[in-house]
Write a protein that binds this DNA or RNA. Structure first.
Lengths: 141, 141
DNA sequence: ACTAATTAATTGTATTATACAACTATATAG
DNA sequence: CTATATAGTTGTATAATACAATTAATTAGT
């Protein structure tokens, strides 16, 4: 009996998460950015400043988790906060020069890892894979 | 400037891991299997009994982590161990009826989740996605 | 206008997955 | 037959997460 496409995706997804997790945790030793930190910096870099709530929503994290991540990034001086002029409770998190530098450096490392892993693939397959991954992520929201 | 395929994959991969992690952690409340447990049961179910070392290698986990996972599964009576007749240090982990049941139940839940997420996709895209995910995972080893 | 309900964020606490290091017991090689 | 390697366990630490309680500010209902 052949595996259905759903079945294959379901299984390979479990594998994938394990593999990617192990890949990122091995490089963590060298003060690397963790996954959420990377996503935060990416989001702020490409969509502009955001508050803790917005980041939590975007990444389906509990607000408390997002708050701690933001605090950690602020403490490392990768982000700084300015109070929202219209709402005394809220802050806007902005990226610092140092944060941007760190983000770009880490991104380069990640892209190079991908290049290594995918160097034998056809450009066609790589494009298709990227496209389907994006589509899959969008299907989730 | 267009994103390169590597760049797209790199970014979407970070998203994906976050999404999938959040999906599985939300269902965890109901005594669901965690990711590694699921992978262990899958592996033993489809490749036969295995020792802690083999499982650790297969999933690129530290042996201590694999040992604890195995112990947890044994404690829940999803696995049982029999001593290796040729090596007094080693054990072979086998799946119990209960473990198999749990594995199959959880698998069904996961597949159904995938069906929900992917119901608007063409079967072509689903097949291609599954295929590329498998290929990606194999590229990693 | 004033109390009630809502919201943004933080902090306390617990859990889980993980790694690394130290250790035990067995097996294999010089 | 000693020295080294291997399978597995246990101690300890860390990171990412969620949930609950709390604080301070905003918005809505009467």
């Amino acid at each position: 009996m052949e595996k259905s496409s759903h079945e294959t995706i379901e299984l390979e997804m479990a594998f994938l998460v394990r593999r990617v997790t192990s890949m990122t945790s091995s490089s963590k030793s060298l003060g690397m950015l963790d996954r959420s930190a990377y996503l935060f910096l990416h989001h702020i870099t490409s969509h502009g400043p955001a508050g803790v709530k917005a980041l939590a929503d975007e990444f389906q994290l509990d607000i408390s988790t997002a708050s701690r991540q933001a605090a950690a990034l602020e403490q490392k001086e990768f982000l700084y906060r300015i109070p929202d002029p219209h709402d005394g409770r809220a802050y806007s998190l902005q990226i610092t020069e140092l944060g941007l530098q760190e983000y770009l450096d880490y991104k380069t490392i990640r892209i190079n890892k991908m290049k290594t892993v995918l160097h034998e693939w056809s450009e066609d397959d790589r494009m298709k894979f990227g496209e389907l991954l994006r589509k899959f992520n969008r299907s989730f929201r």
